[in-house]
Design a protein around this nucleic acid. Structure first.
Lengths: 229, 229
DNA sequence: CGGGAGTGCAAGTAAGCACTTGCATGGAAA
DNA sequence: TTTCCATGCAAGTGCTTACTTGCACTCCCG
């Protein structure tokens, strides 16, 4: 029996029991049972229940797999984003109980939240990078501001992205609580949210209309071509 | 000291302590202290801690104030929805801790969720009614389906409404957990979410432009006239 | 082979927790 | 005035909980 493997098993069990029953409900007896070890081993290995759960959640954040990557070169935003959104939603659903516990623990244990939300944060960053690419490939109009910070250019499309993330989060967290508020079938939700998002940011549907943006910084010239064709 | 008033005070205290510390953390000692009564009074009045908290949450659902009403006759959807969204968001924020506890308790105590989400549900219904009015007043296009249920006409605008609700929910629940995911200032959030929503559903901005829709599909408006004469 | 590390088992400790019981007090109603 | 009801106080009960301690066993390494 490898000690490191045992240690990992305890950490995993702690995170699981915490997700199910919260901090107080995650008794050391329950954790030990879930890990298949003797209760005293928890204390020998981690010192205290508090330390064990804290480390379990940190370990989880560290081992969290990176979010599905979005293409470096956008070709079909709707298809790409739908697949991505579906993957992100699945991840949120898989982590739902844990996220919920962390949220309820915000008052007493605020340090838990970052551990639990790291995947969420990474997905948000990935989406933002993709949205920048959408703008720069001409799928989405985002005129450069005459004054102000350069990134203000993306404020609008970022806000739309935030709304898409919000919809996915809300669907994952709220659907079983309030089923009537999510009438669309669960497996159709990403399609719908992405569709609405693309409309909100006025995204062009395909690359055929996007190449015109390469000729320059965008503006009147690409539009003129679109009228011609 | 009025007995009924005492009873209400205990119920209120129970809901508050539950919101702060969850079911297990809401010890009868803490509830009694928060209510300013003796611990034994809780048992004399409610029989058990479980019954007390259940009743406290039911009482809260019953006493929940109705959501801000949206106008029966839409005039300026952006303004109207923004005010409404701001009110709803404020309500969600005020109830945040309680909602979070209820969510984390979904596994062990699923009956808690409906008590906590009743305000949310009412707001959702109110928004849907308003969206129907937007469609029927010509602010939003929603062609009647040739076949299928009549309500399928509103699926798209309802989906957008769901996304708006999701954004508000997510903002209320997630902003303090993940501040970098909500870069827009908190007080600007409703404006932004509503703006995006209106774009997603292609809502006309004002009543002046609504009559132009008549020349479009020539659907509901001409019929309305015939009925009038 | 001996020693050390890791672990299980069992018993135990001190505190916490939901809840009970007995007595006393105050206020309201008959 | 008496009685009843609601409530407080204090002590208590039995169980749970995080954690400790002592002993024993197994495995691995030098």
């Amino acid at each position: 029996m490898d000690t490191r493997e045992n240690r990992c098993r305890i950490l995993d069990a702690a995170a699981r029991v915490y997700a199910l029953l919260g901090f107080r409900g995650a008794t050391t007896r329950r954790i030990a049972e879930a890990a298949g070890v003797n209760e005293v081993t928890l204390f020998r290995t981690f010192g205290s229940k508090e330390a064990l759960i804290a480390e379990a959640l940190r370990a989880r954040a560290t081992s969290q797999s990176a979010p599905l990557a979005l293409p470096a070169d956008p070709q079909d935003p709707e298809r790409e984003l739908t697949a991505w959104a579906a993957a992100h939603l699945a991840e949120l659903r898989a982590s739902r109980a844990l996220i919920r516990q962390a949220m309820s623990d915000m008052g007493e244990r605020p340090e838990v939240a970052p551990c639990v939300a790291s995947g969420w944060s990474a997905a948000d960053a990935e989406l933002r990078r993709y949205l920048v690419r959408l703008v720069e490939c001409g799928f989405v109009d985002a005129p450069r501001p005459v004054t102000g910070p350069t990134l203000a250019r993306y404020d609008d499309v970022f806000a739309g992205g935030a709304m898409l993330m919000a919809a996915l989060f809300s669907d994952a967290m709220g659907r079983d609580m309030m089923p009537e508020m999510f009438p669309q079938p669960a497996d159709r939700a990403p399609v719908l949210y992405v569709s609405l998002f693309l409309r909100a940011v006025r995204c062009r549907p395909s690359r055929e209309e996007a190449p015109a943006a390469r000729t320059g910084d965008g503006g009147p010239r690409p539009r003129a071509r679109r009228r011609a064709s």
